[in-house]
Amino acid sequence: MNNQPRENYEQRPRRRRGPSGCLIVLLLFVALLIGGGIYGASVIGEIAGKNATTEEVTVTVEQGEGPTTIAKRLAEAGVIKRPTVFRYYLRYKEAAGSLQYGEFTLCKGASYDDIIETMSQYVKRDTVTITFPEGITAQRMAQLMEENGLCTADEFLACANGEDGSDFSQYEFWNEIPDDPDLFMKCEGYLFPNTYEFFLDDTVYNYVNTFYAEFDRQVTPELRQQAADLGFTLEEIITLASFVQEEAGNAEDARVSAVFHNRLAEGSPYPRLESNVSSYVQNPDDNNYIYNWIAPYYGGWDNIPANIYAAYNTYEKEGLPAGPVSNPGIEAIKAALNPDQEYLAEKYYFFVTDKNGKYYYAKTMSEHQSNVNVAFSQ
């Protein structure tokens, strides 16, 4: 028998062991499964409309808006919570192309299938179609908007000129319009004339934006670069184009443009446009921007601010006036950029038309006076 004292192992403190690495991984995996399962169940529930309510909201989709914008609008209205999931569901169901534009009444939390079914049905919104001819002024555009029950003329102009705080800085041209106290209307020249269909219940901002978006589409970067290559700002080219539009607006555009280019050229013996389109003449029968549009705006000819009158009277002011005198079409804009090279090189400085619309061009004042005598004898 061994009488040596036995070592008391039970009295030693035991080292506690934590979970093994494998156990940690297992626990994480289980947690992910649980979390993923909860999220997955939540997504499936949203798709199926398990939390649908009876609360109705109106969602408006504009023409041309795609799945991304539509999903965002639905989320903002509280109809869905996960716009990304909705977009993927549209793709899975191949339903994106069936969605319509208009106003839709939907319940918050509605199933995705119910949403798609509702939004796949065309909802008619009352519209009005208006044609704005090339060379129309901003004020006349505003009057047409009011006459068609879309908004008041004052509301339209306040928005178009940014006077009500409206911002169109998403367009490069808007940021380039000079901040000039002599400029009569900031919007003049950029409200692109065309035929448009408007919703009767839309916002004034959207109405104005329709014109600006079309201008931005029509006046391409290539045209803008062409203006820069000629040494003109965009504002100057649109101003010149407005005179080409008013003085011609037909097959004579390029020749009329050449006459104005020659007058604007450095060292020109006739540095004023001297166009009746914007002049000192007080005659209701003339198409005169100062008499027909500026004067009424200020309550009469005698009330026109001196700086505005001086900035737009082309018989006194050298070069271009402060801004456009109408909203030109694309052909007039292109003519302003592409004057007739023969008439440009031959230095034609004058033109006049007879009552039949025939144009007579001249290089000298004496030739021009002879043409005037002929034109007015027709």
Rank of each mutant, 00 (worst) to 15 (best):
Q245S: 09
C187M: 13
G249R: 08
T203E: 14
F184G: 05
G189F: 01
A258E: 10
A254F: 02
L191Q: 08
T220G: 07
E222G: 07
F215A: 04
E235R: 01
E222L: 10
E235M: 05
V256R: 07
Y212P: 11
Y190R: 03
L191D: 06
E214A: 07
F199C: 08
P193T: 11
Y190N: 09
L223K: 05
N209T: 06
I238S: 00
E222P: 03
N209Q: 12
Q245N: 04
E252Q: 14
E252I: 02
V256M: 10
L230C: 09
F198S: 08
E246F: 00
E188Y: 11
N209D: 15
F184V: 07
F243M: 05
V244F: 06
T195R: 11
N209L: 08
E214C: 06
G189K: 00
Y205R: 11
Q226A: 13
E235V: 00
F192A: 06
L191P: 12
L230A: 14
V208F: 12
D202H: 05
A228G: 06
E236D: 12
R224W: 01
T239A: 07
F211P: 02
R255E: 12
L234C: 04
E222W: 03
P193W: 11
C187H: 11
Y207T: 15
E235A: 13
E235C: 02
Q218F: 02
M185A: 07
E252C: 01
G249F: 09
A213D: 08
P221N: 01
T239N: 09
V208P: 10
Y190T: 09
A251V: 13
L234M: 14
E222D: 14
F184P: 09
K186D: 11
F199N: 11
V219L: 03
V219N: 01
T239F: 07
V219T: 04
T220P: 07
T195L: 09
L240V: 08
D202V: 01
S242M: 05
T195M: 07
Q226N: 08
D202L: 01
A227R: 06
I237M: 10
Q218I: 13
F184M: 10
K186N: 13
N250V: 02
N194I: 00
V256P: 00
L230V: 01
G231Q: 11
L200M: 13
T220S: 14
A254Y: 08
P193E: 13
L191E: 06
F192R: 06
A213L: 10
T220I: 01
D229M: 02
D253A: 11
V208N: 08
L234G: 04
P221D: 06
L234V: 10
F184R: 04
E235I: 00
P221V: 07
M185S: 13
Q225P: 02
Q225F: 02
L191T: 10
A227N: 08
I237S: 05
N250A: 05
I237F: 00
A228P: 01
G249K: 05
Q226V: 01
L223S: 03
A213Y: 00
N206Q: 13
D201K: 12
G231S: 10
F243R: 03
P221A: 03
S242Y: 04
A228T: 11
F243I: 01
F199M: 10
A241P: 12
V256D: 09
T239Q: 12
Q218L: 10
V208M: 10
F232T: 06
A248Y: 00
D253H: 12
D229F: 03
F232I: 02
L240R: 04
N209G: 05
